[in-house]
Every structure is written in structure tokens, then in C-alpha cells.
Design a protein around this nucleic acid. Structure first.
Lengths: 253, 253
DNA sequence: CGTGACGTTGAAGAAGGTCAACCAATGTGG
DNA sequence: CCACATTGGTTGACCTTCTTCAACGTCACG
């Protein structure tokens, strides 16, 4: 865990709030960025594309995520960031993050770790588009989102807001819109899940987990000692979880 | 760039050398690791899989790469590491890396950056399996490897060692062995590239780049000021490139 | 000179893409 | 309040890519 002082350093980070319309880029490909983006509200996609113009969403970020924390050490953007639905984003200057990290090595480690959880999710995403069929891939995506949103999956059936279009789901899974549409219908007909423009209704969580071949370990959620940095909204009131096996690099060995 | 003192700290890292046979895991899924693996020789794959057992290579590492540097901040392995061909690996204790990072913030930043270059490669890998057909995907993979190996692509035709099997290429691209075989034949018949068990012979680099829709920007190679950490073999004699826009977090503002 | 690992090929079929409609909901300007 | 445009969802017909299964070839090695 971070010390109270380290928490303060994190919470005291300055930033300006911007509102982004759906389908609007707020980090452009190749751009040199000076701010990291903390998602305060809405959903954000990390977009890549090939030169033929077909797009691929490589990550989905939600409130509490630092969508491009990596830009602190790599300011040349290799992916774009675009709002999937209306989003509120807090732009935090790299400068401030760097100086906080320099003062508090444990914080630097927590930031690095946070990036690595995202990287583990990227690796799973590769498996999802590379080695799962459409049905499994979509089911897996829904499971991942549910767990990351910390929806209570105890009950057999539940709902959570997830305002994305079928076109965006297609970009996330590497499928076409038409095939996503048919596959969602199949999931519906099998009584696993129903998806509208605004929310996901899970009817059979166990079944969805099986269909999606979902193993939540990679999300690093159970283990609170090594969990991900997560600043939950309202942003300036609570750090939910921040951690490292050692309190600080100096103190650990 | 790192200062001479920081370079020394990096070079002075202790480690034991191990030799790994082809197809042998040296980091197991779910395992708790205490060492980071610096590849000294050979090729290494980062392996993930779904429960049905079909495997997916999510990254390929080569000499000079720290294949699981991320384990320093996230010791629970979410992917396995396996040698693609005989490999020599230097195992560096996390402890040593942590303490060097604590002493030298600029080094900590360089390590973090190195991880983020790998993450950018992961994102491109998603595009490769999600939005490219077999021909394009294999061509892109070959281009990426050539550039990362720092092969001189100036000449129209050239060779470089790349000892992988077609089965491994299939796991890397999310295809089947059979389809990889047919697609490689197509690349050969089109006069782009010939691949044997030991090496890749590129006959038409420009054509291969076009076929693979390859844009090397994400590899962060041109820009020496922000390039990746790369400890080239013989490991303890040379740091080729290490960097950051600022010399250190402290010295930055 | 067998045995295993790797590569190659053919035939058949399934998963997913492409093209082209059409529908429903929402918003906007006259 | 209506005509119209826009966005997102749905469906059918057809076609391509890739997979599956099964066989056979080839090379290295004990």
C-alpha cells in the first residue's frame, strides 16, 4: 500500500477536465502528448488501424483508468484514444506525474504496475481475437468488462451499463458488424446475455463465463496487495486501491 | 541518455545464466517469479492459451530483450515464456533491479519505458491477428522481426536468421499450420520472401512492407532519445541504447 | 534404418465477410 | 407538427478465407 503521503501526492495532481463527444478522438495517432488522460466518466477506446483503414480497438478504458499513462514515458502516441460514448476526461500534465514519481518511488512503482496490468489485458485481447471464435470472443469481452466494472456477479442475472454500438464491438473483436449482430442474437437465443445500445443484461453468468472461456486471473483483481492503481470517481475523493508487495523500493529489498 | 553511473548500475546487475531447450517453458503460467529474464541468445515466445488448449504467441523476444521485465512489478505470471529455439537466458533477481531502480530514478523510468515499448508491440499484434488476413499478417510479422533484429534492409534482398517452425508462426498469427504453410508458399511464389526452418530470405523488402501494411513507428526505433532499453550481447559489455526525454525525474522539472 | 519432428498437399466444409436491402428510433429545420 | 436525414440495428443471399481431416514426403538422428 501507499503511505498517506504518497496517496496525497497522487490526489494532489493537477488537471483540467474536458468533455468528449462519442466517436471523437482526444488523442491522435502519432501526436506528441504532454498529458495523461484519467477517465472520469464514460467509455474510451484505444484505436489502432491498418493503412486500409479498418479499425481495431485494442483496449477499452472505463472510469478510474488512466487510459494513456504510458505516455508519461513514451509521449509519441502509437494509438489514438476515442470516446465510445460521451466521456469526461481529466488531463494531467506529465510534468506533475513525473515529479510526483521522482519524489515517491513507491508511487512510481504503482504507476508502472498499473501500466503492466493494462499490458496483461492487451495480451489476453490478442488471445481473444486470435484464438476464439466470434461467440467466445464476444462472451469473453462481456465477462472482462463486467469484472473490471466491479459488477456484482453473485446473482445469476444482472445488468450493467455499457453504452457501445455493435460497430464498436466489431472493432474490438476484429469481426464485422453483420457478424457481431448475428452472434449477439445467438447469445440472446441461448439465454446467456442480451445487449442493447445502453446496457448489457447478463442472464446466465456461469454460461457466459464458459462460453467466453473466461479466467479472470489476468485482471489482477483478487490480490489486493498487487492490484492496479485505480482512482475512482469522484476523482479527488478516493483512491480505491493502490499497491505493491513492498511499501517502497527503498524500504523493500 | 543515462549517465555513466546509471549505465554501470544496469551493467552491474547480477544474474545466473541458464540454457533452455526449444519448446521448453522457463516461466510457467500463474507462477510467482522472483527473476526477470534477459534473453542472451535464441528466440523466446510469450505464450497464452484458452482453456481448450489452443495456444497463442503474444510476443516474440530476441537477444537483448528483457522478456518479462514486467514481472518486477507484477510477479504473478499471466503468460508463460517458452524458448522457440535453443536459448540462453540470464535470470536477474527482482531484488537487484528494484534496488537499482530506487537508487537511479532515470533507470526506473528507462525500465518502465522499455515495458511500454513492448506494450505498443502488443497492441500492434492485436491489429495483426484481428484486422489482417493471413498473407498480410505473416508479412507484417516478418517485417517487425527484421526491424527489431536491426537487419540492414537497405539492399533489396537480404537474409536473417529466424529459427522458428511453421507451427510457431501459426501460434503467433492465430492461424492453423496448414494455412501458414500455404500462405508462405504464396509469399514465395510472389517473390517476396522465402522461409526455411533456420532463416528468412527477403527478396523484395518494399513488396513485403506493402503486403504487411507495415509502419515501423510503433517500434520506437528512429528516435534515439526515446528508444527502448536494449542490452545487446555480450550482455555485460554494452548498453546500446537507453533513454528518456529527461536525464532523470529529479533533474526534470 | 527406424522413428519422430517438421513440412506439404488435397478435398470438403464451416466460420465469417461482403453486398445490399430494409427497419426503427431520434433529431432537426421549415 | 410534419418531412426528412442520420444513426444504429436486422436480415438474406452469396462468396472467400480459413479450418479440418487425412495422407504423404523429407530430413536428422540415434
Amino acid at each position: 500500500m501507499l503511505t498517506r503521503e504518497e496517496e496525497r501526492a497522487l490526489l494532489d495532481l493537477p488537471g483540467e477536465t474536458i468533455t468528449v463527444r462519442a466517436n471523437q478522438d482526444f488523442v491522435h495517432l502519432g501526436e506528441r502528448v504532454e498529458h495523461a488522460c484519467l477517465i472520469a466518466d464514460g467509455l474510451v477506446g484505444r484505436f489502432d488501424q491498418n493503412r486500409q483503414g479498418s479499425r481495431q480497438i485494442t483496449a477499452i478504458h472505463m472510469p478510474g483508468d488512466m487510459a494513456d499513462l504510458h505516455s508519461v514515458v513514451q509521449p509519441q502516441a502509437t494509438s489514438a484514444l476515442q470516446a465510445l460514448s460521451v466521456a469526461t476526461v481529466l488531463r494531467i500534465p506529465h510534468k506533475a506525474i513525473r515529479s510526483a514519481a521522482a519524489k515517491h518511488p513507491a508511487l512510481a512503482e504503482a504507476l508502472w504496475r498499473d501500466c503492466m496490468v493494462d499490458a496483461a489485458i492487451l495480451a489476453q485481447w490478442i488471445v481473444n481475437v486470435g484464438r476464439r471464435d466470434a461467440r467466445s470472443s464476444l462472451a469473453h469481452l462481456l465477462c472482462e468488462i463486467a469484472v473490471r466494472l466491479e459488477v456484482d456477479v453473485g446473482a445469476g442475472a444482472f445488468c450493467f451499463p455499457f453504452p457501445v454500438t455493435q460497430a464498436q464491438l466489431a472493432d474490438a473483436t476484429g469481426l464485422t458488424i453483420v457478424h457481431v449482430n448475428r452472434t449477439l442474437r445467438a447469445l440472446r437465443e441461448d439465454g446467456l446475455s442480451e445487449i442493447t445500445r445502453q446496457e448489457v443484461r447478463v442472464l446466465d453468468w456461469e454460461g457466459l463465463v464458459r462460453a467466453g472461456d473466461f479466467e479472470p486471473g489476468y485482471l489482477q483483481r483478487e490480490n489486493t496487495v498487487e492490484g492496479r492503481l485505480r482512482i475512482v470517481p469522484p476523482v479527488d475523493q478516493l483512491i480505491q486501491l493502490v499497491a505493491g508487495p513492498m511499501t517502497s523500493w527503498e524500504r523493500g529489498h
